[in-house]
Design a binder for these strands. Structure first.
Lengths: 352, 352
DNA sequence: GCTTAGCACTCACTAGCCTAGAGTGCTAAC
DNA sequence: GTTAGCACTCTAGGCTAGTGAGTGCTAAGC
C-alpha cells in the first residue's frame, strides 16, 4: 500500500510516506495545519516531536508539504495530495447496507433522465459536495422514429425518438414551405431507412448519403436527409452535463471568497470547461482524481474532481463524479462515486 | 409626483417626502447611511444640517427611516422603501436606442424557449441582477398532435405537440402491453378528437369525457383518454421558471453571508417558493415591487422582486422580472423589466 | 414658529501594543 | 538515529486610546 513511487521528486522513505499519509488524513479531518506534536501522537510510532520535525523538514524539501508561516504546522501541497491519492490512500469499499440503500433509489426508475438526475442528486446528497453527471452518449441508442410536422411559414418541427424513449426536438427553418403530406412522406422515408439502427450508424450513413446519392434522388428525400442531419446535430449537443448540490460548496471556508464562488458557479452554469475536463476522464479506468490547481483553470483552484466513467457492456457512456474542495474526505468519497457509477450503469443497462 | 399618501402612518409633508426621496436615492447609490450634512447639500434647498436633522427625526418617528446606531446616518426602512416606490419614484422610460437594442435580441428568434431564455438573459445581463421568467402558460396553445409509441414491456412513450412546436413527452407505465397498431389507432383517435382546440379546452373535455363516456366506449379509446390525461398533467407542471444571472447577487454585501446566499440559491433551484410569489403578481397591472421582507419567506430578506406580467391579446401568459437587493436602482430597473415584458409579449404574439 | 449655531455626547472603526500559545529549527547530548 | 533543550518567529486575541462622523438638545436669531 505504502508505495515508494515518488511523483516527480526523489524516493520517499517508507516512514516518510506513513507520516505524510497520517498528516494528510489529519489535515483533511481538521482543516488546520498539523504540528509535530500532534503528528507524533497520531502516527502510533512513539517518536518524539523533534524526530517528527526532522521528517517533516524532509517532506517539505521534497515539496510534499509546506507551512503557511514559520510557527504553524504543515499543510499538504498539491504534490503531496497527488502522492497521497495515487499510492497512499486506502479505500475500503462501501458496506452492503449503504449500497443497497443507493440501489433502492435507482430501482423504481427507468427513464434515462430520471436515472441521471438521481445519480447526480445522490452524489451531491451523500457526499455533501457538488455532483456532476455527464449525460450518456447516444451513439449506441437505437433509432426509433422521426416525425416532421409543419408549423407556420417555412418552419418544420422535427421530433426524433431514440433508445428507450429519448425525445429530441428542434424547429428548423427550411427554404420553402412543405405540405403536411410531403412531410409525412419524408418522415416515413427516414424512419424506414434508419429504423432499428444505432445512432452512431445513422449518423455515419447520413453523412455518406448526403454526399453520394444527392443527385439521383427525389428532391424531397434529399431535403429530408438534410433535415435529419440537422436534428442529429442538435440532439448531440444538448445540455450534456447535470450539476447538483452546488450550494454545498458554499460551506467550505477554502472556497469562501465571493469572487471565487462566483467564478465557480459561473463555470457550473457555463458547463463548457467542466465538460472539457470530464471528457478527459472518459477513457480512464476506475476512479480518477483531478486537482483543480493542475487543470489550468483558475476557477478550480483549491478544488478537486473525483470522477469515474460509467459503462454498459464495456462501452463508456459518460462520466460522473463530484466536485469539492481539495481538502475532502477521499476515502469516503471515492467508493461513493465508484458505486454510483456502477449503479447508474446497471440501471441504464437494464433499461435498454 | 411627491404624493402625500402615507402608507400606514400619518401624512408626510411635501418637504419631508422630498427629503425621504433624496435620502433613498442617495442611499441606493452609496450604500452608506446618509447623514444630515450630506442630505442638506443634496436636497438643493439650502437648509442647514440642523434643520435636516429635525425632519429626519420626524421621518424616523413615522417609521420611514432608521439609524443603525446613534452616530450613523439614516437608512430607509421597508416602509420607507414602500412609500418611495409607490409614490415618490420618478421613472423615465427607456430611451429608444436601448429599446431597439433589446428588440434586436428578440427579433431573430422564434421558438418559445429561445425567447424566454433571451428574456431572462437580458434581464439579468442588463440589470446585473438575477432575472426570472415564468414560462408562458399553455392554456391558449393549440393542440396539434399526440403520438404514442410502444417501448419495451408495458411502457408507452407519449409525445404531445402543441402551439408553435412545443413538445412534451413522458414515459407512461400501462397496465398491459399495447401493440404498435393499437397505439397508432389511439394516437389517431386522440389527435382527431382534439386537433385545433386550445389546450384549456382539451383539458376540460378530457376530464368530462373521462367521467361521462367511459362506459360506452371502446376500451382502448378509454385508455387512450386516460393516457392523454396523464400526459397533460406532466406537460403542465414542468420546469415553469427560468432563472439566470444568479451569480450577480454574490456581489452585493447586503447578501454576502454564506448561509443567506446558500438559502437564496437553494430557493432558485427549488423554485417553488419563488413561483408562488410570482404567481401572486399574475393579475397585477404593470410593474410591481415586492420586498422580500414583506413576503414571509426569510430567504428573501433584504431582497426585492420587480415583476410584471406579460400578456398577449389581453391574456396574461406569465410573469417576468428581476430579483436583487432591496437597495437596487429601481429607477433604472423598472423600465427595463417593463420593456422586456412588452418585447417578449410582442415576440410571442408574432410567433403564434 | 421655523431655522440655525453651538455643544456635549455616542458609537464604530482603526491603529498600536501586548501577551499567550503554537510551532519551528538548531545544537548538543544520548 | 533519536531526543531534550532552547531561542526564535509568527498569529490570534484582547486591551486601550484616538479619531471622525453623526446625533439630540438648547438657546438664540429671523
Amino acid at each position: 500500500m505504502a508505495g515508494t513511487r515518488g511523483s516527480s521528486e526523489a524516493k520517499v522513505s517508507e516512514r516518510a510516506s506513513h507520516f505524510l499519509k497520517t498528516l494528510i488524513e489529519h489535515y483533511i479531518r481538521d482543516g488546520q495545519p498539523v504540528g509535530s506534536r500532534t503528528l507524533a501522537k497520531e502516527t502510533g510510532l512513539d517518536l518524539s516531536p523533534a524526530t517528527v520535525r526532522n521528517v517533516m523538514a524532509d517532506l517539505e524539501d521534497m515539496g510534499l508539504v509546506s507551512s503557511p508561516h514559520t510557527s504553524a504546522g504543515r499543510v499538504p501541497t498539491l504534490l503531496g495530495y497527488r502522492l497521497f491519492v495515487d499510492s497512499l490512500l486506502t479505500v475500503k469499499p462501501l458496506n452492503e447496507i449503504d449500497v443497497a440503500a443507493l440501489r433502492a433509489e435507482f430501482e423504481p426508475l427507468d427513464d434515462t433522465s430520471a436515472l441521471v438526475d438521481t445519480a447526480s442528486r445522490l452524489l451531491s446528497g451523500v457526499t455533501r459536495l457538488a455532483g456532476v453527471v455527464m449525460l450518456p452518449r447516444h451513439e449506441r441508442d437505437v433509432f426509433r422514429q422521426i416525425e416532421l410536422l409543419p408549423l407556420s411559414g417555412k418552419k418544420v418541427l422535427a421530433i426524433l425518438v431514440t433508445g428507450e424513449g429519448e425525445v429530441h426536438n428542434r424547429i428548423l427553418y427550411t427554404e420553402r414551405p412543405f405540405s403536411p403530406s410531403d412531410l409525412v412522406r419524408a418522415s416515413n422515408y427516414l424512419t424506414e431507412l434508419f429504423t432499428g439502427q444505432d445512432m452512431g450508424n445513422v449518423r455515419k450513413r447520413l453523412l455518406d448519403d448526403l454526399h453520394s446519392t444527392h443527385q439521383q434522388m427525389d428532391a424531397l428525400m434529399a431535403q429530408a436527409l438534410e433535415i435529419a442531419q440537422r436534428v442529429m446535430e442538435s440532439a448531440e449537443h444538448k445540455d450534456q452535463l447535470l450539476v447538483s448540490g452546488q450550494t454545498n460548496l458554499m460551506q467550505f471556508d477554502e472556497l469562501a471568497s465571493m469572487e471565487r464562488l462566483k467564478a465557480l458557479f459561473e463555470a457550473f452554469t457555463e458547463k463548457r470547461e467542466i465538460l472539457y475536463l470530464l471528457d478527459r476522464c472518459m477513457q480512464a479506468d476506475g476512479v480518477q482524481i483531478f486537482f483543480g490547481g493542475e487543470s489550468g483553470y483558475a476557477v478550480l483552484d483549491d478544488c478537486s474532481l473525483v470522477t469515474t466513467p460509467y459503462r454498459v457492456e464495456g462501452e463508456v457512456l459518460g462520466v460522473l463524479g463530484v466536485i469539492g474542495p481539495t481538502r475532502m474526505d477521499y476515502q469516503r468519497v471515492i467508493p461513493i462515486v465508484d458505486v454510483t457509477a456502477r449503479l447508474l450503469a446497471a440501471a441504464l443497462r437494464q433499461n435498454n
